[in-house]
């Protein structure tokens, strides 16, 4: 199946869970990454149970600080 991961089309075997994808894509600090599937938030608790389908669009949203130490 083909899925879109962070804007790029990727080929993966059927039956892939979001958790599997996070591992395969080597996502940094995955427990602090927000995942959306098809523009909806995926609760962290559903990462293993959510099996991706052909055409799904997955995004990883990362914490980013930066700027000034204001406090």
């Amino acid at each position: 199946m083909k899925i879109i991961v962070a804007g790029a089309e990727k080929e993966y075997a059927d039956g892939l869970s979001v958790e599997d994808l996070i591992e395969a894509e080597k996502v940094e600090t995955p427990q602090y990454v927000t995942v959306t599937v098809n523009d909806s938030f995926l609760p962290n608790t559903e990462r293993t149970s959510r099996i991706l389908q052909d055409g799904d669009v997955v995004e990883f949203l990362y914490f980013m600080g930066g700027g000034a130490a204001d406090r």
Partner: peptide, 10 residues
């Protein structure tokens, strides 16, 4: 504008 560098502030 949030121009801070830390998450508690954000």
């Amino acid at each position: 504008l949030d121009g801070t560098d830390n998450f508690p502030a954000k």
